[in-house]
């Protein structure tokens, strides 16, 4: 009988260190499938973040660099500028990208750097034990907001996909999730599209993936999935937020 489902070549056969119900593993697989399908493993460089996915290179089998907290977009810029033939992706959490690394991601996106960012938004700092992130939901409890996120003190959660889409430079920016099978296929298509835009040297591409952290949310995996659907998805709506084709070709703003 023919095998219809197998481990992608770009994914190591390796026991996971992620918690039960954590979405990092599914997202790793989608990235690995994409690398396989595009046949780019031999020219891909991944950049692992500081966060629970710091060991992403233990799962995804291609060249890797390990970033400092938040700096992956600057490193990806360095690689792409000197080796435009390489395929480069950053894999970043919400603390990494939306807090300490906000400057780097905005400027990389605005320069239109031709790399792909997989942005894993689980509304919390997973690795350091569940502190509040810029993406933490209103009233959501965390170890540094034990009474819930007070928006009058720290503002509303940052919608990274919308924020980056406000930049005038063309880009592909989309928000997806992988909490149920029906979402996974769409997320896969989006990741494939993001890598394809990079391969065509079209634009910067970012896939925000609304994710879970049952451990630090203090929930069982099914509860975490339900909470993501009930609380996060209404605030973080799914779908493409920006596509490169939608941009006006010429802006009437050039200096004489």
């Amino acid at each position: 009988m023919a095998k219809t489902f197998q481990r992608p070549q770009a994914l190591f056969d390796q026991p996971t260190h992620y918690c039960p119900g954590c979405t990092h593993g599914v997202i790793h697989r989608l990235v690995a499938e994409t690398i396989d399908e595009l046949g780019i493993r031999g020219r891909t460089v991944g950049i692992a973040p500081v966060g629970c996915a710091v060991l992403a290179y233990n799962y995804i089998d291609c060249d890797f660099q390990e970033a400092a907290h938040g700096r992956a977009p600057a490193m990806a810029t360095g690689i792409k500028r000197v080796r435009p033939d390489l395929m480069v992706f950053t894999y970043q959490g919400d603390g990494d990208l939306a807090s300490i690394g906000m400057g780097e991601i905005i400027h990389a996106a605005n320069r239109g750097e031709k790399f792909t960012t997989i942005f894993v938004n689980n509304a919390i700092y997973g690795m350091t034990g569940g502190q509040m992130a810029p993406t933490t939901m209103p009233n959501q409890r965390s170890s540094t907001s034990p009474f819930g996120r007070k928006t009058e003190e720290v503002g509303m959660p940052i919608r990274v996909a919308e924020l980056l889409s406000a930049l005038v430079t063309p880009a592909y920016i989309t928000r997806q999730t992988v909490i149920r099978p029906k979402y996974i296929q769409k997320a896969k298509k989006a990741i494939l599209k993001a890598f394809t835009y990079q391969m065509e040297k079209r634009c910067f591409s970012l896939v925000e993936v609304v994710s879970t952290c049952p451990t630090n949310w203090g929930m069982t995996p099914p509860e975490a999935i339900q909470w993501t659907e009930d609380v996060m998805l209404p605030y973080y709506p799914l779908g493409d937020v920006k596509t490169p084709d939608a941009e006006p070709k010429e802006m009437p703003c050039k200096a004489k």
Binding site: Q65, A74, M75, A76, T77, G78, I79, V82, E104, H107
Partner: peptide
């Protein structure tokens, strides 16, 4: 800050 990591990325490549 970013420049140091652009250097890192390029040197690493």
């Amino acid at each position: 800050v970013a420049v140091a990591y652009m250097i890192f990325g390029a040197a690493g490549a």
